[in-house]
Amino acid sequence: MLLADRILFIDAEAMVLDKPAGLPVDAPRDGALAVENHLDSLRFGFIRRPSAVHRLDRDTSGCLLLARNPKAHARLSAAFEAGEVRKTYLAVLDGVPQDKSGMIDLPLAKVSTREAGWRMVPSPKGKAARTGWTLLAARGGRALVRFAPETGRTHQLRVHAAAGIGHAIVGDPVYGRGGRAMLLHAWQLEVPRPSKPAISAEAPLPPTFADFADAVA
Rank of each mutant, 00 (worst) to 15 (best):
V92G: 08
K110M: 08
V16M: 03
A217K: 14
L42T: 07
D5K: 11
T154N: 09
V170M: 10
D59L: 15
W187E: 08
P149H: 01
R158T: 01
A4C: 12
G171P: 13
G45S: 06
A210L: 12
A52Q: 04
F80N: 07
F147D: 04
P197Q: 13
R68Y: 09
L2I: 10
E190G: 07
P24S: 09
L144M: 04
L33M: 14
A52F: 00
P206D: 09
L39S: 05
V96L: 13
F44L: 06
T154D: 05
R153M: 06
V191D: 10
A109S: 11
R180S: 14
A78N: 11
L136W: 13
A198L: 08
A67D: 02
D18N: 15
R177Q: 14
K127T: 01
L76S: 06
S61R: 02
V170Q: 02
P70I: 06
V191F: 01
M15H: 01
P50C: 11
P70M: 08
A34R: 01
N37H: 15
L135W: 07
L157V: 10
V16S: 02
G62T: 01
R58P: 02
L144P: 00
N37D: 15
P107H: 00
H160C: 11
L66V: 04
D94S: 13
H160M: 10
D11C: 09
A213F: 10
S101D: 14
F212I: 03
H185K: 04
T60P: 04
L135Y: 06
I47Y: 14
R119V: 02
L17G: 02
M120D: 04
G152N: 07
G31I: 08
L17E: 00
A4M: 08
A217S: 15
P204F: 02
H38K: 03
V174E: 02
E81N: 09
R29A: 15
P206C: 10
T154H: 12
G152T: 07
Y175L: 00
F147R: 02
P204W: 00
M182S: 08
H167R: 09
E36W: 10
T60Q: 08
T154E: 01
L205H: 06
L183Y: 06
G179Q: 00
A137M: 00
K100E: 11
A116I: 03
D99Y: 10
K110D: 05
V216H: 03
G22N: 09
L17V: 06
G132T: 10
D26W: 04
S61G: 11
S195E: 15
P192C: 10
D99C: 08
A72T: 10
G179M: 07
S123E: 10
V53P: 07
S195V: 13
G166Y: 05
R119Y: 00
A78P: 05
P194H: 05
L205D: 05
E150G: 13
L205V: 08
G141S: 04
D172C: 04
P97V: 01
S77R: 12
D18F: 03
Q188D: 12
A21T: 08
K87L: 08
A148K: 10
G83T: 12
L144Y: 03
H155D: 07
L65H: 00
R114V: 14
L39I: 05
A143F: 09
L2T: 12
K127H: 13
L17N: 01
L33P: 05
D94T: 11
